[in-house]
Design a protein around this nucleic acid. Structure first.
Lengths: 329, 329
DNA sequence: CCGAAGTTTGAAACCGATTGCAGAACCCTG
DNA sequence: CAGGGTTCTGCAATCGGTTTCAAACTTCGG
């Protein structure tokens, strides 16, 4: 059986109240008493019962994290960052995977919301009204999506895509293709907007292949459209899709990067292991996880005092083997 | 503010005790009263406060899951299985990633153990004594490791590796290489034992390349040893390493499977997307997660009544593009 | 029609912490 | 040295449920 505050109190010869104060509001108790209490607690290996504390303070010491699909390598990295930062702050993390299903997601949220102090939500395409009602009842940080006044952590897609387009332009490419992710995804909209602006500014032609599932198969499916369009370079919604592209292009007998250049977004592990290695817009995924926790914790501390409840993380183009000079035809 | 049991009691015109009973021990209350209580609860959207309940029952309704490295694609699948099954049983899951660090792991365990009813531990190389002390104080299920009387879920490595060896033998291979994972890993020991037995039985020569980190780079590092050894086929500790092998072999100008056949273990997503696609021993990872939760829950219900606190999951060789007939030289 | 047994319900104790309030001890000032 | 102000500590209430216990009410056999 675990030691309770009463036992520590007896051991130290004080009342439970004093023990509680010595531990959580040290300023309020005389230093010699405090010392005695701390030693007693140490001796007995005392650790306060979180449920009991939570009952009266209304805080659980837990955070919730909801991701759409843990099988997408983007998310494990994010989770790691959240984990690490939460642990430092002495919070534990509930993880839930919604399997890309917005309905399952709202269930998860409902269940989880009651057991946590705050929630980190990666919900690229949940309904806006759901998010609003949620934000009204829970402290919430969204990742990879910006919406109204809901606190969020996003990547600077504009900059990253700008770098990618500049890179392609420098290699002499005039026509670039875009392989889109889910239609409803905020990131997809943000990215294509950035791409439109960047290609226009660079005087390049843009061919949009459409929307595809954000998986390997999505990239495979898009490849033939890309080939038919006659572009010399292509940017994909994420790395997994870019790898799908690469695979299908190879099967079709095209050489990357001699015949066509390919760029992904995310910088997942596999992108440095494919052949050719994948040029990609690198996102600081773990850092995003940490930033989300930081933001969440500061919101918990002073609900309205956070000046700017938004973080935008930098992005960086990593040039690898899948991009080269435009073919001269 | 959330509705409490008292409000439901008032609404239904009964005492809080009756509400509690109506909800958790329905047999003890008169059916018309029960009905009235249930409707009142429904109307007010009542849900019992888990912290309060946990305080008196000693149960939290939470499970803990500790994995060594979420970046290894094996684990997200496992996590998904655990998640899904836990949700069905109305448990929430704390996830922690130990970053392959046994010391961090014991910390995590200590912190988590107090907030959960039971723990699922993937700790291929934690110290045996740590595991024993843990098992003594917590309800615990280990995954991918069998040790003493600690309840566990493992894969039938023998069978899977037997299938792989039989496949290679049928293709005419006489010499097979093994690219090992971490030295201290239980799975590694189990697999090489199985491999020794299978190759001996088939009259094949076995070359063991040694131990490598269970990552892409580990496979890369092993490749040259494998080439130098003159084997015509190789089995790797896991798919990620096998993909590393594939990459390095290609860089060295060897053709897979014409010059050398490669087999992985795990069946991660990427193994069907590489080129060539990877022949692999498929493990039912999600099923393992579900099985671990099932086992854990039955242990929680009747701590000593579980006949055989072990599950062994089947494995299945998937023949894909990376294996072919042995080269004739 | 009485007492025993069985059902159903509520009062109150309890889980393990935190915290408002009040009293005790001490310090300072005039 | 009285009186006001601090500082420190303990009592008791509280959070929101569960559970023990006993009372009240039924049912049933004899």
């Amino acid at each position: 059986m675990r030691t309770t505050i009463r036992e520590v109190a007896r051991e130290a010869g004080v009342s439970p109240s004093t023990v509680s104060r010595a531990l959580s509001m040290p300023g309020l108790v005389n230093s010699v008493t405090r010392e005695r209490v701390l030693r007693a607690a140490q001796r007995l290996g005392y650790e306060p019962n979180r449920a009991a504390r939570g009952l009266i303070t209304g805080k659980t010491g837990n955070l919730g994290l909801i991701v759409p699909d843990l099988a997408n390598p983007f998310f494990p990295s994010l989770v790691k960052g959240v984990q690490a930062r939460a642990r430092e702050a002495d919070y534990a993390v509930f993880l839930a995977d919604s399997d890309e299903d917005p309905a399952a997601e709202s269930d998860l949220v409902r269940v989880l919301a009651k057991q946590v102090d705050g929630l980190i939500l990666c919900s690229p395409r949940g309904r806006e009204e759901d998010i609003l009602t949620l934000a009204a009842t829970t402290t919430l940080v969204m990742v990879n999506r910006r919406f109204g006044r809901v606190p969020s952590v996003v990547f600077d897609n504009s900059d990253g895509i700008g770098q990618a387009v500049a890179h392609l332009a420098a290699l002499g490419h005039k026509r670039v293709g875009w392989v889109g992710g889910p239609r409803a995804s905020w990131s997809d909209r943000d990215r294509i907007r950035a791409l439109r602006a960047a290609t226009a500014a660079a005087g390049m032609d843009l061919y949009v292949a459409g929307h595809f599932p954000p998986q390997f198969e999505g990239g495979v499916a898009a490849a033939d459209l890309i080939v038919a369009s006659g572009v010399t370079s292509v940017i994909a919604y994420n790395d997994v899709m870019a790898l799908g592209l690469l695979g299908r292009l190879r099967d079709r007998g095209l050489r990357v990067p001699q015949d066509i250049s390919v760029i992904g977004i995310d910088d997942i592990q596999m992108s440095s292991m494919s052949s050719p290695t994948l040029t990609t817009v690198s996102l600081a995924k773990e850092q995003a996880g940490r930033a989300a926790v930081d933001l969440l914790l500061s919101l918990l501390e002073r609900p309205d005092g956070v000046r700017k409840p938004r973080r935008e993380l930098p992005t960086q183009l990593l040039v690898r083997g899948s991009t080269g000079v435009a073919p001269t035809d």
